[in-house]
């Protein structure tokens, strides 16, 4: 909701407030350092292009300097700065969610709220498949390096190692998917009907209040934007 808020609110104050909330939450969750690094990594590539395009192509009355045929305008700088702050607020909020939410707990909670078990399983399996695939890729890389594959050499050597690394990852993943689906079917996964969850993530009153507060805040900001009470990016 914070990331949507950052998208809706223009100007500096709103997005900066969201950045402050995200950073404070990250400090409490002890992921602040990692959050800043990941958010910067996510933001920088887009931010650089936004700055280049906005500063030099956005029409404005105050020209700061000129490079060739391009004028860098004050309006362009302001637009770029506001956009970068919003981007950082959005990436920070998304990163914070990823770093503080157990994917399995998230999917179980969605299932508890009525999501189809089949869809919930696919979602959970997809999320869990990533670290499993990374671990498997590590073992495969070790096996191929043991057979002399040079993964520490130059670009050509690394390129030569692509197939021996990727093929076992893909084939073993496909095999595992097939085995897993068979194992699920023989345990009546496809049987229709409602399931009781053996475990559901905790949901404290304070968390519910905070969630509703964020939702109400988001609706208020959106309404304010429509009514012209919330500033928009110039």
């Amino acid at each position: 909701m914070e990331s949507v808020g950052a998208f809706v609110i223009g100007g500096y104050a709103g997005p900066l407030a969201i950045v402050a909330i995200v950073l404070a939450s990250a400090l409490v969750a002890r992921v602040a350092g990692r959050l800043v690094r990941v958010s910067l990594l996510l933001t920088l590539p887009i931010a650089i292009s936004v700055v280049l395009v906005s500063v030099f192509t956005r029409a404005g009355t105050t020209v700061l300097f000129t490079i060739g045929p391009f004028d860098a305008t004050l309006e362009g700088v302001q637009f770029a700065a506001q956009t970068v702050v919003r981007l950082f607020a959005i990436s920070g909020a998304i990163s914070l969610f990823g770093m503080t939410t157990d994917p399995r707990a998230f999917v179980y909670d969605l299932e508890r709220r009525g999501l189809s078990p089949r869809f919930a399983f696919v979602a959970a399996a997809t999320v869990e498949a990533v670290p499993a695939m990374v671990a498997r890729a590590g073992v495969i890389a070790a096996a191929q390096r043991s057979r002399g594959l040079d993964t520490e050499g130059g670009v050509v050597a690394r390129a030569r190692g692509f197939l021996p690394l990727i093929v076992p990852v893909v084939l073993s993943s496909l095999t595992e998917v097939e085995e897993r689906s068979l194992a699920l079917e023989v345990r009546a996964f496809g049987r229709p009907g409602r399931r009781d969850l053996l475990w559901a993530p905790g949901d404290r009153t304070a968390e519910r209040v905070l969630r509703w507060a964020l939702f109400v805040g988001l609706v208020a900001v959106a309404a304010g934007r429509v009514a012209g009470l919330v500033p928009r990016t110039p």
């Binding site: 073992v139 495969i140 096996a143 390096r145 043991s146 002399g148 040079d150 076992p168």
Partner: peptide
């Protein structure tokens, strides 16, 4: 590792982790 592989051959437990 690439140099040591000429001295030490290591066959991993799971063949499917290397066959490509």
């Amino acid at each position: 590792v690439a140099a040591l592989a000429a001295r030490v051959g290591l066959a991993f437990q799971n063949p499917d982790r290397q066959i490509f």
